[in-house]
């Protein structure tokens, strides 16, 4: 999952070389610098790739403070969806 997210991030940023600079600790807002348009494109790509739905209104930006944190968040979304 980590690698797929890194690939999606560098696609959304339009900078293929970014993928080599990302680590599980990378802060997606303050280090990658996702702007609002890139953010929505990234989240849509994540939803499409992993077949899950994220509630945009309830989304906490803190989930983007590292790729690790975001992966944990995605697991929790999947678990919630599975328990419904």
């Amino acid at each position: 999952m980590h690698q797929t997210i890194m690939n999606l991030l560098s696609e959304v940023k339009g900078t293929p070389e970014l993928v080599h600079q990302l680590t599980p600790e990378t802060d997606m807002i303050n280090e990658v610098g996702l702007d609002s348009l890139q953010m929505i494109n990234f989240i849509l790509a994540v939803e499409t790739t992993f077949d899950l739905q994220i509630d945009y209104e309830e989304f906490d930006m803190a989930h983007l403070s590292s790729i690790n944190q975001f992966v944990d968040f995605l697991h929790s979304v999947k678990e919630k969806a599975g328990s419904l």
Partner: peptide, 10 residues
Amino acid sequence: QLPFFPDHER
């Protein structure tokens, strides 16, 4: 609206 995230800094 299309999906969006609020952007306070923008």
